[in-house]
């Protein structure tokens, strides 16, 4: 993944327009939102139709309406579970994100750190992180959420680190020259040009990581630890043959993932709103 998703097409350089054309952008945005929503509605309708027409049993796949009904009646426990799982994911996202960014800055500044971390990051990227969960539960005690948060943090660290480091290496030559002209120190260069310039990349990393954080925190629950989260609720509902309820929790997990993704996307769009390439 690169930051291509955040760099809008080149603006009409040389036009004196103060503000981007709001009308066109608004219509475009509406269409990008409307299209997937319509597709989703159509898919749900077909799904419902298929379940009714072919008389599919709930343990294979329940109808969306029954899932929705179950979701509505159990909204309190779904929300409680979402708070637990989402909380773990958030802690993991914040810790993994900060560590990933700080490490990437160190690696960009100090060559030794970069060389040392290549091996560590490669190893971390290869390990299926959730496989660490059972080990971490014994380390931190099965009664604490720490193991899950740590799993999420490690999962977040990798994309954030890799994207940030790539962004830190994309300094525009004219900016490098400028800071050289000002006889700026390495730290001044990092603070005023390198890190701000890498923001689109950092946010791309965080956006990928946000979904990973939710998935990791959720799956880590399958391997033990306290009850109450969405992951544990899915397994216990499924094992007591309450398939509609299990799917209602799955729906909850999907919504948590969506919220994480959309919030990071919104922050990204705000923070990089002026980053269109200028002349």
């Amino acid at each position: 993944m690169t930051a291509t998703t955040v760099t809008a097409p080149a603006p009409g350089a040389g036009t004196a327009s103060k503000q981007p054309a709001a009308g066109g952008a608004g219509a475009g945005r509406l269409r990008t939102i409307l299209a997937p929503v319509l597709l989703g509605v159509v898919a749900l309708l077909l799904w419902q139709l298929a379940v009714v027409v072919f008389d599919i049993k709930p343990f294979i796949v329940p109808a969306p309406l029954s899932i929705g009904g179950e979701f509505g009646t159990n909204i309190a426990t779904v929300v409680a579970g979402a708070v637990v799982t989402g909380g773990n994911a958030l802690v993991g996202l914040v810790i993994g994100g900060i560590v990933g960014i700080v490490f990437a800055i160190l690696a960009a500044l100090v060559r030794v750190v970069d060389e040392l971390s290549v091996a560590i990051v490669a190893a971390l990227a290869v390990i299926p992180i959730v496989a660490l969960a059972p080990v971490l539960y014994t380390m931190f005690g099965a009664g604490a959420e720490t193991a899950r948060q740590l799993v999420a943090a490690i999962a977040v660290f990798i994309p954030v680190y890799i994207n940030t480091l790539r962004g830190l290496r994309q300094v525009r030559p004219v900016h490098r020259d400028l800071l050289h002209v000002y006889a700026a120190s390495a730290w001044q260069m990092t603070r005023t040009v390198t890190v701000p310039g890498a923001l689109p990349f950092i946010f791309t990393g965080l956006r990928i990581a946000s979904s990973l954080a939710v998935i990791s925190a959720l799956i880590a629950e399958y391997f033990g630890g306290p009850v109450g989260g969405l992951g544990k609720s899915i397994t216990s509902a499924a094992s007591s043959s309450n398939y509609n309820l299990a799917w209602a929790y799955v729906l909850g997990a999907i919504l948590v993932g969506l919220v994480f993704y959309c919030v990071t996307l919104a922050i990204e769009m705000f923070a990089t709103r002026h980053y269109r390439p200028t002349s």
Binding site: V174, D177, T192, V193, G197, L199, Y275, T278, S279
Partner: peptide, 9 residues
Amino acid sequence: FQQAGLLPW
């Protein structure tokens, strides 16, 4: 410079 080279942020 030949390019303005302003910091966009």
